[in-house]
Design a protein around this nucleic acid. Structure first.
Lengths: 354, 354
DNA sequence: ACGGAGGTTGGAAGCGCTTCCACTGTTATC
DNA sequence: GATAACAGTGGAAGCGCTTCCAACCTCCGT
């Protein structure tokens, strides 16, 4: 039916081993023979069969990425970059998304034992001990991106430090009544960013007000890093009236977008009545003038890919747990850039407010 | 090293054929034997080897999706939905993205001849004759989503009709000076939406003004469906001064976001000075009150998956070229919902303006 | 008691490749 | 000129599965 290595070998008058060598950059073949075989293969439109190759070599040149089912713009960016790094190395990429824990189980079993991939990249997923154990025992290389487990490779951004930097920036602008709008505490980044927030206040001798900390409820869906969660949280803060905070650190840009919407409805001017700093630097952040902590997505992706491939090639066995830092991007919403801008004013810059 | 079908067979005291049957819902096995084998397999932590299976069966239970490298929110949604439909059918999904034509070539050769997948789903990609030919000859099932080729399965939304509906809506609101901000004409949807725009004007006896049609330049990157392209186009329209259009149909929401930003800078109030209708209904559209044509992404994805799988299972051979229709979603930016709203006012609704 | 039908089962071939091993010819070494 | 070393090459085994085919066991009708 379809063309195999035998067809090529026959037509070239060589053995199949030689054809195989021609296709694998082997040094055990004369340059001339190789060239001729490659030409004939081209004529025949021959391409080695991926599965057969994988089976014989015991590796697939494929990695699996697993993202939460509610993946958003942050993941999109990450995925784009991972895919790019991977394609440069000629690796293929499976994309799986897990919606609930039950599926997660199937997923892992699949990835681990079905042998369709050489390694796994987990995005933002929290691994419980049972599965961490499984990964380690299975010997399948894994790397966790945007989350952490003590006995596996991981690459995170410094959420605590990032949160602190954001809050310190607000403090440096003179704010004392500072709130935090956060994702659900079941999420790893949410938890750590909250710590950073608290630390920054503490170190600056600002007493924290429990009403100024709003963690998204689970009933808001997903991990609380969504627009509606931000909107609701802002409404809640607005209801404090005179006791409203004058600045808010918001744990994700997408929530910040929701918060801005609520602020607008409530007649709260940003940044004058309330300064805002977000987290992530999604594309939209610049369109709405949102100051935010930028995650170095490109670097994360590249590092993760390189590391995983090295692990697959067995070039290394030591632990790899990197923390990159987030960068403060100052736009309008924090009030540092253009203190006279009002909500509804025409912004002088490359960005505007909601 | 790892557990194979032989290990299970030995431990169960049966032949490997029987084990295979147990794992493949064969009717040629006694229920009791099957149960026992499955139990033993479970004990042994055995899972059939995916590649070996694929090789023997000559199918991989995997499909490849190919997206443009600049994939944006529209694709994110599509991808999410495709992935979801696929996982319900227990299919795996490769994700490839092509950045330039050269890579596209590699890509196709890979997908077509390497046999790592059973079918291909192409997103928004325009297929030239050479490759269309290749696909047809290769016999690999393909479906094109959001683009069209006369001799391949495809599923599109009715771009022309959608554009017409959008423009007709603006006309019904009393507008006569109507502009269009479009993507680059090399993009299939851009081309067809422009046709729809022209037709709507014609049918309403509105003479079209060439200065009111702005197609994105290629130097704006990608296919022109991006924020900056919208921003620039709006600036250009604003420069017409008194001759400005009073309404604009914008070919994608992401451009509309850019246009709104420019409008704000220019002091143009939306919808009072200028009504706007976008296209896509990306998540952000509702946050900024953008009226738009909604693409039925979930349906597209489900239909595409089902069709492709049927093709793979050889259940059908007839051509499948479906056109779904886009739905007009009325929010504030077109002025139909709340004619007294001004830019900067507090919106009474679940949405606000940029 | 016997032939056959039908339900179950095991063996072996084959999917298309890589790679170990044995073999051939060529060149370098003394 | 004999020997060693080595670059090239082909054959065959093996990767872990599915599936064809033959074999076996029951059970039935006769």
């Amino acid at each position: 039916m379809s063309i195999t290595i035998y067809d090529v070998a026959r037509k070239a008058g060589v053995g199949i081993a030689t054809v195989s060598r021609a296709f694998n950059d082997s040094s055990l073949i004369r340059e001339e023979t190789k060239k001729r075989i490659l030409e004939i293969a081209d004529e025949l439109n021959y391409q080695p069969h991926g599965l057969a190759r994988g089976l014989a070599r015991k590796q697939t040149h494929t990695i699996a990425t697993v993202v939460p089912f509610f993946f958003n713009y942050f993941f999109l960016n990450l995925l784009k970059n991972v895919q790019y790094s991977l394609s440069k190395k000629n690796y293929d990429m499976f994309l799986y998304s897990v919606d609930n824990l039950e599926h997660k189980e199937n997923m892992f079993d699949k990835v681990l034992y079905e042998r369709k991939c050489d390694g796994v990249m987990l995005f933002s997923l929290t691994l419980d001990e049972e599965y961490a154990e499984k990964f380690i025992k299975s010997n399948v290389p894994v790397i966790i991106v945007d989350n952490y487990h003590s006995s596996l490779d991981s690459i995170t951004i410094s959420n605590k430090r990032g949160a602190k930097d954001a809050v310190n920036h607000l403090i440096s602008l003179g704010h004392k009544k500072i709130a935090m709008i956060n994702g659900n505490l079941s999420s790893f980044p949410a938890k750590v960013r909250l710590e950073g927030f608290k630390e920054a206040l503490m170190e600056n001798n600002i007493i924290k007000n429990p009403r100024y900390i709003i963690n998204a409820d689970l009933d808001l869906g997903e991990d609380g890093f969504n627009e509606m969660a931000g909107y609701r949280a802002m409404k809640q803060l607005a209801s404090l009236g005179k006791n409203r905070p004058t600045a808010i650190f918001i744990s994700s840009d997408i929530q910040a977008i929701g918060a801005l919407r609520a602020a607008k409805e409530e007649g709260i001017s940003v940044p004058d009545d309330c300064a805002i700093v977000g987290f992530d630097d999604i594309d939209f952040a610049k369109y709405v003038g949102l100051s935010t902590m930028r995650q170095p997505v490109h670097t994360m992706a590249e590092l993760a890919v390189n590391r995983l491939l090295r692990r697959i090639d067995n070039k290394t066995r030591d632990k790899f747990q990197v923390e990159l830092s987030a960068e403060l991007i100052i736009r309008e919403s924090c009030g540092a850039r253009n203190v006279t801008t009002h909500l509804g004013d025409i912004s002088s810059n490359d960005a505007i407010f909601l």
